[in-house]
Computed example of a mutant assay.
Amino acid sequence: MKNKGNKGFTLIELLIVVAIIGILAGIAIPSYQDYTQQAKASQGIVGLSSYKTAIAVCYQKNGSFIDCDAGKYGIPNDILNEGQINGIKNTTILDGGIAAELEAIIPNTGDNITIKFLPIINKNAAALNWQLICWSGSSDIDEIKTIIDSCESATN
């Protein structure tokens, strides 16, 4: 009789492969969650660019940010419902400031990220810059900066 060679993998080999896949999944899944939230936050921030442009035009025409509100001087209306602009749940535009609740969340807490763009006039350079302030429920700045690293400050 001929001795047939075993074909296939041993139990130990299969267990090692399963363990390696489990370790890789444990590393990849949290990173993937962060990347998807970064994409949502980026969409929201880019979606606010039309507001920033209209507010800059309002300032040029009026010489101040007073009454540069949503629905006035060509500034788009507030977003009241999620889904009107990708990445944004709602906005409030008042005197040139833009407050927006983003669809992006902090993965550890599930809190939505809220941002505020504040216009800053540099009189010497005749330029309009925007300060980005972020906060999110009980999350601290380090958790928020994993999603939006350009936040200059954050408070609860």
Rank of each mutant, 00 (worst) to 15 (best):
T109D: 06
L15Q: 08
A28R: 00
I85G: 07
L15C: 06
G44P: 04
Q60E: 14
N86P: 07
Q38S: 10
A127N: 10
I144C: 12
D69Q: 08
I75Y: 08
V57A: 00
K2M: 14
N124Y: 03
N77L: 10
S150G: 09
K116W: 08
I29A: 12
I93V: 13
Y32E: 01
A70P: 08
E103Q: 07
A54P: 10
E101R: 14
N124C: 07
F65D: 06
F9R: 08
E13N: 11
N124T: 12
D142S: 15
I133T: 01
D67K: 14
Y51L: 07
D67T: 15
K145L: 11
G44L: 04
A125K: 00
C151D: 09
A28K: 00
Q43F: 03
A99V: 14
V18R: 04
A154E: 05
G87D: 09
T91I: 02
I21R: 02
D95A: 13
S50F: 05
A54Y: 09
K116Q: 15
N156M: 02
Y59F: 15
L15P: 08
G96Q: 03
G74I: 05
G96L: 06
K2S: 15
I148Q: 05
Y59T: 02
A41D: 07
S31F: 12
T92Y: 07
T92G: 09
V57G: 01
E13T: 10
W130D: 15
S150I: 07
N124K: 12
Y51R: 03
A39W: 01
N108K: 12
K89S: 13
I45V: 05
S42F: 02
D142R: 02
E82V: 12
N108M: 00
T155N: 15
C58Q: 10
Y73N: 11
I148L: 06
D142V: 13
P76Y: 06
T53D: 11
A28H: 01
I16D: 10
N62W: 04
G63C: 08
Y73F: 04
N90H: 11
D34W: 06
G47A: 02
G83L: 03
S42K: 11
I55S: 08
L128S: 11
S153H: 05
K89V: 15
